[in-house]
Design a binder for these strands. Structure first.
Lengths: 341, 341
DNA sequence: CGATTTTTGATGTACGTAAATCAAAAATTT
DNA sequence: AAATTTTTGATTTACGTACATCAAAAATCG
């Protein structure tokens, strides 16, 4: 049987009330007594029953998710997953609020973060735009002892407690190797399509991609990065133009969202041009394109996992509990047409 | 505020005791009253507070894991993960027993399963050997209302409640496409190395692999399957022999365990022979070989996830609760040297 | 030393559910 | 209608923790 507060009291030779004062850091305990109790806790290996404690406290975790607006499929899916989490709110004792801010808009994000100061909040999760102002706002919340988790895209040098997202450098490297190997020893040009170089995840993917390309596939030449701003129309125009101008493009890496436009452009040149294509984010569009053979591989991060992980981490951090690092690692999924879920 | 049993009682116009009788299926309630209470439960959307219920019941979940002996790295890792789970036992209210049985030994497995009959057990997880006798033994436990989960390898046509493992046909197909694409349009022989065709996961991987090879890579010829019985020594001999006899082998798919022998054989022919190799299970050996470039891709199932998922499913099933299918899907991990965890 | 402050103990209530007991009411049988 | 059985209600205790209150004991101060 697992030890309880009564066992600590008996072991330390003090009353239940004193144990309670020590456990919950209430005042009115002499240092010697406190140490005696803490020793007993360690010695008998007491672990607080969080379920019982939460029951007694009637605890709920007010959580805030700050997510960008915009109609690309990935962010839409992310918002949907947060919404799903709200449906489990009562059984998970969470109270989730979703705050939407314009994508890549630093002042709005900072304002949204600052609005949370002083509020009774058990945790904040945000898709970070990587700017010093955002870092400062996050650090203000952290200094108020509010757990902060970055989601999908991380924040450089900030004091955020946790990052719930994939390793984007590794993702870029993986994309490069897949593309390079799939192209056999062929020689030609590679086009990289990004959303915006203002977000850290896109920059890191490019960094990893470029590194492996340079190291291992010298016959493949990287063309200047196209920025599609995650917008299907713009992306389609950019890609169509690139494909018609440069006949030696044999591979494409799309590291952002807005792949609808890319797929449309590819279909327009379909049987004549043979292209090897690796993209990010599994959506209904990329899935269909993968099945048809328009694209060759999809790298994906599971938004549902990220949201659930962020919630677990915020709750644990709010309770001062350790997180199981291994369980919270967000993995890079690689989908070929054969292992689609 | 979330509704409680008191709210049901008030809504249904009955006493707390009657609500309790209905909720816990105790006798002594007229049909009409029962229906009245159930209507009230549905109407106000009552959800039992599992934490409070478990606290009141002092519930623990006695779980049994039946895993094969044998010293291959994967099963060793699996046993380790179960062991880790026992360390979390007190906070998860589980009481986990590990039963080891000789690998591929049907009578032993059946005996281990039958020994559980009539015992107070909240769930059984087993690595199934796919035989009718095992199926029958599992079905006996299921008919005793004991939750049963297959782990890693599934059991054909059985009544097990859940399978905690990857889709092995998809894994085989994925391996084929990776190998085929990595080989560009080259022509040559492919060797498949299995542990044993007696386990369903190996059979399914081969099935998926063969299908994609036949459909999509006609220039690659499959040689007869080698059975290494997951034994490093035997595997090394088999592979070395095959490589020296057939000079046109250009690719290897190892779908079982015991890759130590394979890696040794590959290193022996290293710089001269250029081989593209895809294997299963990430272990210290396969990881090192991947980093060095001796092998090209590792397909993996995360044993830790499988064990944790199995536990969640057994607990939920024991409580008659629904499982979140999406969360319990075990994914196929694809590792290149760039995205190792 | 007595007076004052600080520390500790004893006790009770609460959280939401489970489970038991006993009495009362209702339904069923004779 | 009485006797019997079944159903329902009322009440209590328990799970492990949190939190509040009040009294008692110990420590510190003047």
């Amino acid at each position: 049987m697992r030890p309880t507060v009564h066992d600590i009291a008996a072991a330390a030779g003090v009353s239940l009330a004193t144990v309670d004062r020590v456990l919950n850091q209430r005042p009115g305990v002499r240092l010697v007594t406190r140490e005696k109790v803490e020793a007993a806790i360690r010695q008998i290996g007491y672990i607080r029953d969080v379920a019982a404690a939460n029951l007694a406290k009637g605890r709920v975790y007010p959580l805030v998710f700050i997510v960008p607006t915009g109609d690309n499929s990935f962010m839409h899916g992310l918002r949907l997953e947060v919404h799903h989490a709200t449906l489990r709110a009562s059984i998970e004792r969470t109270d989730i609020r979703i705050v939407e801010v314009p994508a890549f808009d630093v002042p709005s994000l900072v304002a949204a973060l600052d609005a949370l100061q002083g509020q009774n909040i058990a945790g904040v999760a945000l898709v970070a735009t990587d700017a010093p102002e955002v870092r400062a706002a996050v650090d203000r919340l952290v200094s108020e002892r509010i757990p902060v988790v970055t989601l999908v895209s991380d924040l450089t040098d900030s004091a955020r407690h946790h990052y719930a997202g994939i390793d984007n450098i590794a993702a870029g490297r993986t994309a490069a190797r897949l593309l390079g190997r799939f192209l056999g020893g062929r020689e030609g040009d590679i086009t990289v399509l990004a959303g915006s170089m203002l977000v850290r995840d896109h920059r890191e993917r490019l960094q990893g991609f470029s590194a492996v390309m340079a190291e291992e596939f010298p016959k493949l030449r990287l063309l200047p990065v196209l920025e599609g701003r995650d917008d299907p129309e713009r992306t389609k125009t950019l890609i169509s133009k690139a494909l018609s101008e440069r006949k030696d493009i044999i591979g494409i890496y799309s590291l952002g969202a807005g792949n609808r436009g890319l797929i449309a452009a590819l279909k327009a040149v379909r049987p004549e041009r043979e292209l090897t294509v690796v993209v990010h984010e599994l959506t209904q569009h990329t899935r269909a394109a993968l099945v048809e053979g328009t694209i060759d591989a999809v790298l994906n991060q599971d938004a549902g996992h990220e949201v659930r992980s962020a919630i677990r981490v915020m709750k644990a951090t709010a309770d001062g509990q350790a997180v199981i690092a291994d369980q919270e690692r967000i993995r890079l999924d690689i989908f070929l047409k054969d292992n689609l879920p």
